[in-house]
Design a protein around this nucleic acid. Structure first.
Lengths: 157, 157
DNA sequence: AGATAAAATGATATAACATAACAGTCAACG
DNA sequence: CGTTGACTGTTATGTTATATCATTTTATCT
């Protein structure tokens, strides 16, 4: 299966991602409005994560929009698990993998080119859950993000 | 007496933490100035992470201070590995363990009481590094944070 | 001690990220 | 066709972080 394997440089099939989202929303009786579609399309088309204000600027080229409107669209897309928030960048990125993955993926964020690679990592989390269980801690959400140089950037001059 | 509340039971001795920091800075020829000492002391005394503006407010009770001054102290303390940044809270917390730990710890952040437990997790990272190496990615820094309810809060009504 | 260079802090302004509150609009459904 | 609830618009403000330049403090050398 060679679905949109995004990584450094490679373009994402934005249209495919958006129509997948459309089907998913339809199936779950969620409203995939023009604004939500537009925001997701911008994220899917971008090789790197975008901030809410980045998104507002891009949408604004077509239609006047306030940041809060973008934030609302982002909130919806996050809830629908169609996008991820990259906390170390205060930015957002379209979800590369099929939705409904329970395990929070690891994100490899390149400090040079800014791209993000999404690495599913179930085993990784299984190991950790022992430690967490020992502490009696009940996890609700996780943030695992790694900064560094991606292979492409490291090879480059 | 002057043991500060830190609700996971592992209370921190603020004074001990500060004097440890003092020794460490002296050994490394770093300047442990009054402002840096004060900021670290506030963090060490707090059961939960504090934002830069929280810190500014607390320091301000004694002496007028601008946020940027606090940010500079935080930057120094982060570089010296005396504190951690909790990105999912935009806040900072004193480092519980001996300094010089290379492996980034996992932080268990309680959504109810707000406390943070710092869990060193070397094994955890060893597993992950294979995946990362396969991607040709050269990690520089990592963020592993987990939100949930701590044991105390979960037991409480 | 005085000169001086580097580091730290003060002061002000502004950038960047995010939410509150309320009014208006649109779509679904009885 | 009118009510309801979800979505969006608008304005304002809150929160987190950095830029810039002036001033003070500290370390070091002579």
């Amino acid at each position: 299966m060679n679905i949109e394997r995004r990584s450094t440089g490679s373009r994402r099939a934005s249209a495919a991602l958006v129509s997948r989202a459309e089907r998913l929303c339809h199936d779950q009786n969620l409203r995939f409005t023009p604004m939500r579609r537009r925001v997701l399309a911008e994220l899917a088309a971008s090789p790197e994560p975008l901030t809410a204000y980045d998104l507002a600027d891009r949408v604004r080229e077509e239609k006047r929009v306030a940041p809060v409107t973008v934030y609302r669209a982002l909130e919806f897309l996050l809830d629908a698990k169609l996008i991820h928030r990259i906390v170390i960048r205060n930015a957002y990125t379209a979800c590369d993998h099929a939705p409904h993955h329970d395990a929070t993926p690891v994100f490899l964020v390149c400090t040079r080119c800014g791209t993000v690679e999404e690495v599913p990592s179930e085993a990784f989390q299984r190991d950790l859950s022992e430690t967490i269980a020992e502490a009696g801690f009940r996890p609700k959400s996780r943030v695992f993000e790694i900064e560094g140089e991606c292979a492409k950037c490291h090879a480059a001059p």
